[in-house]
Design a protein around this nucleic acid. Structure first.
Lengths: 138, 138
DNA sequence: GGAACGGTGACGTTGCGTAAGTGTGC
DNA sequence: CGCACACTTACGCAACGTCACCGTTC
């Protein structure tokens, strides 16, 4: 079982460039590895983390899931499940599939809540500006 | 300077009812007092916190500002400034007014970011559901 | 070889959750 | 006087920020 030919070992990136591109701090990216959320695929002989495009994609997914209020543990679970679902070689257990569907439903719910909060916040911001405009000394 | 007649001392509420109505935990409401964000206007002789409608309004403002990612210190500052702006008796210093305008602008910015994050999260949620639907075993 | 970049501790901070034991309101 | 409700104190936790000090890359 050698490397698949279509999985050509694409470029890898060091943590600095990765953090910049994804928009996370170095600390956060390292912490995500510590908790097993995103593990770099490789290291240099000297110990520098090397991230593939897939690793970066996973970081971006994590970044976009965060506003929904999932814990890092939940996100690790969710992303692992999703990877297994997408991989055509492993067929996913019914139990796993079920849990993934719960996550999807949960994500939906949280999107709705976030949307509600956003509307409230926007009203508040407008109100604040209105107060400022209304109390303008001539 | 006695009590204004139109500021009739309206009803007060204990922390339990307040927390329920606003949708915050007891711990959170107490913590907000600890950091000076929302201080109950009164106490019973025995030490029970008593909140007025204004106190509750302030709690609700805090709750709606939180999703924008302000720190509790910032929110305290912001809400204090807004109170001084609305109070017709005190006229606000130029410096304070300026800071309040910065907060308003900041709030706007954060609303925009939150909106962007929400859209990304919604795309992600739909993608997740699409993956699930796409891998349905017949 | 030296400037930019990265590594691993380790401690600090924010915003609460969660008891534990005691007092208050009615 | 009992029972829900509240109070303080304290420790715990997640998700990082922030040094400090040392190694790596090119």
């Amino acid at each position: 079982v050698t490397k698949d030919p279509h999985v050509s070992q694409s470029e890898t990136y060091q943590i600095g460039e990765v953090a910049d591109r994804v928009g996370l701090s170095l600390r956060t990216v390292r912490y995500y590895e510590e908790v097993g959320l995103v593990t770099p695929s490789d290291r240099t002989p000297g110990g520098f983390r090397l991230y593939t495009d897939d690793d970066i994609a996973r970081l971006e997914l994590a970044k976009h899931l965060k506003p929904l209020g999932f814990s890092l543990d939940e996100m690790r679970d969710l992303l692992d499940l999703q990877m297994r679902l997408r991989d055509p070689d492993t067929d996913i257990a019914d139990e796993d599939r079920e849990r993934l569907e719960e996550y999807a439903e949960d994500a939906r719910r949280r999107c709705g809540q976030l949307r509600t909060q956003l509307r409230a916040a926007e009203r508040l911001a407008r109100q604040l500006e209105a107060d400022l405009a209304g109390s303008a000394d001539s």
